[in-house]
Amino acid sequence: VLVIAIIAGAAYYMVAVQPFQRVILSVGDDSVKTGYFLKRMVASQGMTADSVLQSLTAELIIRQQAAAMGFPAVTAQDISDYLRNIAKGENETISDADYDKWFQERLDTTGLTAQEFNKVIEGEILAQNVQDTIGAQVNPQVPQAHVWIIVLDTQENAVSAKARIDGGESFDAVAKEVSLDTTSKENGGDMGWQVPELFSTQISSVIDTLDIGKCSDPVAFSQQDSTTGTTATSYLLLMVSEKSAAMQATDAQLSQLKYKAFLDWLSAQEASTEIVFHGLNGS
Rank of each mutant, 00 (worst) to 15 (best):
G135S: 04
A136H: 09
Q137H: 09
P140V: 06
P140G: 04
Q141P: 00
V142C: 04
P143C: 01
H146T: 06
H146F: 08
I149F: 00
I149E: 07
V151W: 08
V151I: 12
D153G: 06
T154I: 02
T154M: 01
Q155G: 10
E156Y: 07
A158N: 09
A158S: 08
V159A: 11
S160V: 11
S160F: 14
S160T: 15
A161Q: 07
K162H: 10
K162C: 06
K162R: 15
K162S: 11
A163R: 06
E169T: 15
S170M: 06
F171I: 10
A173E: 06
A173L: 10
A173V: 14
V174P: 05
A175Q: 02
K176Y: 05
K176V: 08
E177G: 06
V178G: 01
L180S: 04
T182E: 13
T183S: 12
K185I: 11
G188L: 09
G188I: 12
G189R: 07
G189W: 01
W193D: 02
Q194T: 10
P196Y: 05
P196V: 09
E197D: 09
E197T: 10
F199V: 02
F199R: 03
S200E: 02
T201I: 08
I203L: 00
S205E: 04
I207W: 00
D208Y: 03
T209V: 02
D211E: 13
D211F: 06
C215D: 05
S216N: 02
D217P: 02
P218V: 10
P218W: 03
P218C: 11
P218R: 02
A220G: 03
F221M: 11
F221L: 09
T227Y: 03
G229H: 03
T230E: 12
T230R: 09
A232K: 14
S234R: 10
S234M: 07
Y235L: 01
Y235Q: 01
L236P: 01
K243Q: 13
S244W: 15
A246N: 13
M247K: 15
M247R: 15
Q248G: 13
Q248K: 15
A249V: 11
A252S: 15
A252F: 13
Q253C: 06
L254T: 14
S255E: 15
Q256D: 15
L257T: 14
K258C: 12
K260H: 09
A261R: 11
F262S: 00
F262C: 01
